[in-house]
């Protein structure tokens, strides 16, 4: 760290009209400087922003790297399933493939994970099932974050009567059990696609985010730096989005990422119950549901879609944890 000395020798520039500067403070910085340099030798000269720093921090976290790689893989799988398998997941050969056991030698082949009770390739179905899960997870989360985030922000920031009305509405929605509500709502759709599931879960799921956001905004709103912003003449938009939101968003992101896993699980549950996605859509939940009939004789039929579901949920929860830590500069 050769530039410590550089910092040490910093002399305030004498300016006309400015007589002398506080020498004491300068010395203070020199003392503190050593700590600063020690703490972030790489970052110090780069231009910095909250998200940039968070990103730099995340790159060094194994938990993040593992979950990010997994999620990336799942997303690619969801978009380009054919890149992972050339077997048609809907092709059923009851004669030859009925409950055929996994063939471990057939890596990436149709028989790798075995075949289900309809003679369909389990490997191909696990690959193609990612699309439904990831779509539901990401879009429901996006919907509830925007809807809940805005609601919570408005309630927390404006307070008073606005808060009272918005919070009561939130409470009403909060009172509806997610699964039960989704069952009722989905029954109203004639044909159920991924998008009907997204709408149903989005309409019912935003309250948790709204509550978290409202609480965070209420706390941050009190902080002196928000008062300082008001004292400078900052408008509502600036206070909300520059001061309050970045300081209130961390718990929302954590809750949202963890909830994302939950929505994927809920979609699977709904499909399992037969009220979520329907054939011909391919979903892990549907496959888990159909696997239960043969669980004694062919447990692998249940195992692979269930494992895919668990890994996906876990990956998003781990990502949530890593992101929370990275977004809090104080923890660095």
């Amino acid at each position: 760290m050769p530039d410590i000395h550089d910092e040490d020798s910093y002399e305030p520039h004498p300016k006309p009209g400015v007589s002398h500067l506080d020498y004491a403070g300068e010395q203070g910085m020199a003392v503190e400087q050593e700590t600063l340099v020690e703490r972030d030798p790489v970052k110090r000269e780069e231009a910095r922003s909250l998200w940039g720093d968070a990103w730099r921090d995340l790159r060094g976290r194994p938990i993040f790297l593992i979950s990010a790689v997994l999620i990336l893989l799942l997303v690619v799988m969801a978009i380009f399933p054919w890149a992972f398998t050339d077997t048609d997941p809907r092709k059923a050969d009851l004669v030859n493939d009925y409950l055929r056991r996994p063939n471990w030698g057939d890596v990436f082949g149709g028989g790798w994970f075995g075949y289900d009770a309809q003679g369909r390739s389990i490997y191909a179905r696990v690959i193609y099932g990612a699309r439904a899960s990831i779509t539901v997870g990401i879009f429901v989360t996006a919907a509830v974050t925007v809807l809940g985030g805005l609601t919570g922000m408005v309630a927390g920031y404006f307070g008073g009567a606005v808060d009272a009305v918005v919070s009561r509405i939130t409470d009403i929605f909060f009172g509806i059990p997610l699964l039960l509500g989704a069952l009722v709502l989905l029954n109203a759709f004639a044909t159920r696609t991924v998008w009907s599931v997204v709408i149903a879960l989005g309409v019912l799921g935003w309250t948790q985010i709204a509550r978290v956001m409202r609480g965070a905004v209420l706390t941050v709103k009190q902080a002196d730096f928000v008062v300082a912003g008001r004292a400078l003449g900052a408008g509502t938009g600036r206070l909300m989005f520059r001061h309050i939101l970045p300081n209130a968003i961390a718990p929302v992101i954590v809750v949202a990422t963890i909830a994302l896993g939950g929505y994927i699980a809920t979609e699977a549950t709904l499909s399992f119950l037969g009220i979520g996605l329907q054939d011909p859509t391919i979903s892990w939940g549907i496959d888990i549901s159909s696997a239960q009939k043969v669980i004694r004789t062919a447990p692998y039929v249940l195992f692979f879609p269930a494992a895919a579901l668990s890994v996906t949920v876990l990956a998003f929860i781990m990502l949530g944890d890593a992101v929370r830590d990275a977004l809090d500069p104080k923890l660095r």
Binding site: Y10, V18, L21, G25, M29, R44, R48, P329
Partner: peptide, 22 residues
């Protein structure tokens, strides 16, 4: 920054990297 006795190069730092007095 210079006027209040802080090094102007600190412009890209975050508050938590400073002591209370700074």
């Amino acid at each position: 920054l210079d006027v209040v006795g802080l090094n102007p190069e600190y412009i890209n730092r975050y508050p938590h990297q400073f002591s209370g007095g700074q």
